[in-house]
Design a protein around this nucleic acid. Structure first.
Lengths: 161, 161
DNA sequence: TCTAACCTTCACGTTCGCGTCAAGGTGAAG
DNA sequence: CTTCACCTTGACGCGAACGTGAAGGTTAGA
């Protein structure tokens, strides 16, 4: 009967976090230094201790960097907005003045919309590039089929651009 | 007796190209140094002269860097494939051996497919992030409407994430 | 021809995103 | 208490992607 532990969230040390996320310890510390990470819990002797939220956050950061190609500064903006959102929530609750509440919300809305615009520009670029690549692929497949079928058309890709 | 110039494609100097593409002169030279740019034409006195193809190429590079977040090395790969494609076309035409032709095409196909996979992973990430952002936006809009309508629901965002 | 604006090639400086020691404190096991 | 793996904070180094002169040639116009 091991007195079931009620809310000990199982904190991890940096090496385990590194193994878990695929990041290096250096990177993790650097991200904290750059303010991308809420100063995680610390042990008595100043060991960094991470919870599952930190893991998620780190994975998010890694994704943004590796897959989306954002700089840490940009990631900082994106994450900052999440924290700002939290604080806005408190501010929001701290006042009952509809005007101020509306202002807070309007601010947040603006930020999010700029984020979306930025992300969508990126996505559109990517979509264009993917379209190009797929057209090339289709073309190559056509040629390959021709060759494999013994055909030998001189048509040479037509509109090469 | 200026024998009417039939095909003078209006060459630009680096400063004009910079203004046109939004890049700096330094970046343009650097891209050439890194082999991303075919050594454009040179004037008598070694001035770099760019044509519209160069402009397109530079815009493409800028797009890949700024919007898609690729490194110059990665861009080099992507561009190299385009040139490889050109050369493969010649190789392809140089031989009549179906096996070799198929090999050339298969090679090109592989490259393109890897490119597509890379790009799509990126796009999926972006799509996820955009979804998140849009959900946040919808939420904020709902709140804002509530406040502007004089409502004051305590519901507080419900499922916070 | 002369000048002002433009260009060239070095070449060193800078920021970002870490890698890599160095010198020491921490923590759990035995 | 000792040991050893693990952690800490500096601090220097490095490659990428340029910025920023310096020193000098080029071009086009008055």
């Amino acid at each position: 009967m091991s007195h079931d532990a009620p809310a000990i969230p199982k904190l991890l040390r940096i090496q385990e976090v590194a193994a878990e996320t695929g990041l290096t310890m250096r990177s993790i510390r650097y991200y904290e230094e750059m303010g991308l990470l809420a100063p995680a819990a610390r042990s008595e002797g100043a060991y960094r201790l991470f919870d599952t939220d930190d893991l998620e956050r780190l994975r998010f950061i890694a994704g943004l960097r590796n897959d989306a190609g954002f700089s840490l500064a940009e990631i900082g903006q994106l994450l900052e907005d999440e924290q700002t959102r939290q604080r806005n929530r408190e501010r929001f609750r701290a006042t009952a003045d509809p005007a101020e509440r509306a202002a807070v919300l309007g601010d947040a809305l603006e930020r999010v919309e700029r984020q979306i615009a930025t992300l969508e520009r990126k996505r559109e670029r990517l979509a264009d590039m993917i379209d190009d690549a797929q057209r090339r692929r289709a073309h190559l497949r056509g040629h390959l089929e021709d060759v494999l079928a013994g055909r030998d058309p001189q048509h040479d890709t037509a509109g090469e651009r």
